[in-house]
Amino acid sequence: MTLDPKVVETLKTITTATLTTVLLKKGLRNVWLRGAMPLKPGQTRLVGPAFTLRFVPAREDLATPASWGSPISTRAAIEEMPEGCIAVVDSMGVKDAGIFGDILCARMQKRGVAALVTDGVVRDLHGVLDSGLPVWCSGAAAPPSVAGLTFVGWQETIGCGGVCIVPDDVVVADSDGAVLIPQALLAEVVEESVEQEKMEAWIVTEVERGVVLPGLYPMNEETKARYAAFKAKGN
Rank of each mutant, 00 (worst) to 15 (best):
A58F: 05
E197P: 01
T18C: 10
L19F: 02
K40W: 07
A97M: 10
G112N: 09
D4H: 02
V8R: 13
A228V: 06
V121A: 11
H126Y: 09
V204A: 11
T15A: 12
M219P: 09
A106D: 07
M1K: 04
P5K: 07
E195Q: 14
R54A: 15
A115Q: 03
G84N: 02
V166W: 12
I165Q: 09
P5H: 06
L53A: 14
E79G: 03
L53K: 07
K26M: 15
G162L: 12
K40H: 05
E208P: 01
R209G: 04
E221N: 05
C105N: 13
A63M: 00
K95P: 01
D176I: 02
T223N: 02
A141G: 09
I103T: 14
P144K: 04
D96I: 11
P49W: 06
A184D: 15
L3G: 05
A232Y: 07
R226Q: 14
E60S: 14
T52P: 11
E80L: 12
E188D: 15
I86Q: 04
A58M: 10
T44K: 15
S73M: 06
T74K: 07
V8Y: 01
V172K: 06
R54L: 12
G215D: 00
P49G: 08
S193L: 06
A114D: 01
E197R: 15
A114G: 03
E208I: 07
A63K: 00
I99N: 03
S145H: 09
V179P: 12
N30Y: 07
L149Y: 03
T2Y: 02
S73E: 05
A50S: 13
S67R: 15
T21H: 14
K12L: 01
E60Q: 12
S131C: 06
V212S: 15
L11Q: 07
T64E: 01
A232P: 08
S67K: 13
P49I: 06
